[in-house]
Structures are given as structure tokens and as C-alpha cells.
Amino acid sequence: MSVLIFADQSEGHIRKSTYEALSYGAKVAELTGTVAEAIVLGPVLDSLSGLGKYGITKVHHVPDNGLEHMDARCYTAVIAEAVQQTGADTVIFSNNITGKAVAPRLSARLKAGLVAGAVSLPDLAGGFSVRRSVFSGKAYANVSIITPIRIITLNQNAYGIAESAGTAEVLNMTISSPASRLTFKSTSKVSGKVPLTEAEMVISGGRGLKGPEHWGLVEDLADLLGAATACSRAVADAHWRPHHEHVGQTGLAIAPNLYFAIGISGAIQHLAGVNRSKVIVVVNKDPEAPFFKAADYGIVGDAFEVMPKVIEAVRRLKAN
């Protein structure tokens, strides 16, 4: 018995969402009286023994070059074999793009119950029950897994990273992956920016900003705070901003520590994408904007007057 955590990497570097999954997995291992081990696929540049800091005792590394690109079928075959070799009874992924692609396949392959989008540690009283986010963040479901092997994908920003002293033993694992039938043609990344789903702070603009030429108000604040930028659906549909910045029911669902909404009224579909944020700030000139009901802090006022002052105050704060 052990907890096996899938440590997702991108271009050789372990992802931030993985550190959350590792910390969570170590805690699950502690609760179930077993050890936490990690599995890493593909070539890596980071020190894997360093994952010991997150409570991992062993890191199983399958270094094959063929695993650089995520192919859910190949990843599933390799991880399923690793589960068998390590005797793991709980497998944990981040509920990121890779986790969403691979965990369901692994669940079907191993006939192992899956809780997707977990937001809590398991409750072990009378079974193995985990709380997950449902109805687009508007409710939670407590779901029990009734199979011997259990799979959990952890929502991003749902569990804090816990670091302490420790070194993990790194073991090379030889598992041959089936040949991928996918051919990867090209990859384009928005360089230098924080991925929206991993961002701790997000500054977002809506129709109240009146046009793309006013996005400096969003970007200046984001730059000062190291935040990612986002927008409402209306803004993406009007092509003021790219679609990948759209957060809401039909766009991305995010859960940053700070969601700062400027000129967004807060329709229920928008809230569905952001209501798991820890602190919500709303700046809107309409005091009746529904977003104020979901906000922690609000300013009723004209964004064009308010935001330059906010930016100036943040600049002063950062300068001190």
C-alpha cells in the first residue's frame, strides 16, 4: 500500500500544481498510515530528490523521450504498470490538463473509482469520502470511492503547498510505453505569462472598460502584482481580448487567491468560473451589479477614475 502522486512536468520542470498534489498526497499517506511516492514521466531538468521537501519518500522516474508530449493512452499504460509495480492503492493527480486527460482513462483501466476535482482531504470515517466541486463551483458533493484502488484529481489552488526538510530517493523505472499514434505538429505558448489556471492573482476586465485600448488599467495592475490577466465572455466575444483569457461557465474555471474584477457585472455564468477564488474584489460603477453580492471587497465607482489610484497605491506599497 502506498500513495502514488503523478508529478506533472512541462519542458523538464515540475509544475506548481504538482507541488500542491504532492503536498496533498503526503497528507493522504499520513492519514492512511502509508508512504507517499511520486512518478515522473519523460526527461526532467529539476532535481527529483528535491521532491522529498513535499513529503515524498521515493520518486519513480520513467525517463523515456517518447513521453515528452502528453498522450493520454501512453501515459495511462505506463502509470497503470507503475501502480501495479509499486502496489499503490491511492493515485493522485492535479486536476490540470494532463490530470483531466489521464485520470479518467486510468480509472477505466484499473476499475478504480475516480473523484475528479477534489477540494478536501479524504474523510476516512466509515470509508473513503472526498469532497469535490460540482455545479460549476456552486455546490460540493461528498463522494465515496468504493473500489480497492482510488484515484483523486486535486483542484488547483485547493490545497496549500507544505514544505519541510527531506530528500526523496530517486529510482529509475523501466516501463515500455506503447508507441504513440499521435503526431505532434506544433506547440504555441503564450510566453512569459503566468498560466491563468495556475495564477495566484488574476486581474480581469469586462465591458465596463469600454474597449481594448483601455486594457492598460488591467495590465499595469497585473504587472505590478505578478498576476495573470483575464476577461469576461462579452469581452472575448467582441475580440477585445483573446478567447483563452475568458473565465466563466463556458471559459476557464479558476480559483486564485485574489480575483480582481474591473467593469464586470458578475452574471451567474461569470461567477461559475470564479466563485472558488479566495478573495474577490469588484470595481463597478453600478451599485446594483450582482458581482457585489459575491465579492469580499468592492468599490462603487468609475474604473477610469478608481483604477489609476489603485495602481498608484500598489506601486507605493511595492516600493516600500
Binding site: L114, V143, I146
Partner: peptide, 25 residues
Amino acid sequence: LTSIQSFELPLAKSGVKLISADHPE
């Protein structure tokens, strides 16, 4: 492979703290 035991609604927010537009700082 799984079964839903119960649903829960999130705790309501304690209410927005409004700050005057004259003092965004």
C-alpha cells in the same frame, strides 16, 4: 465505482466590504 453521499452548498460570503471611490488606496 463511486457513490455520492451528500451535497453541500458553500457557506455564504459574509458580505462585501465597500470602500469609498474617493479613497481607493
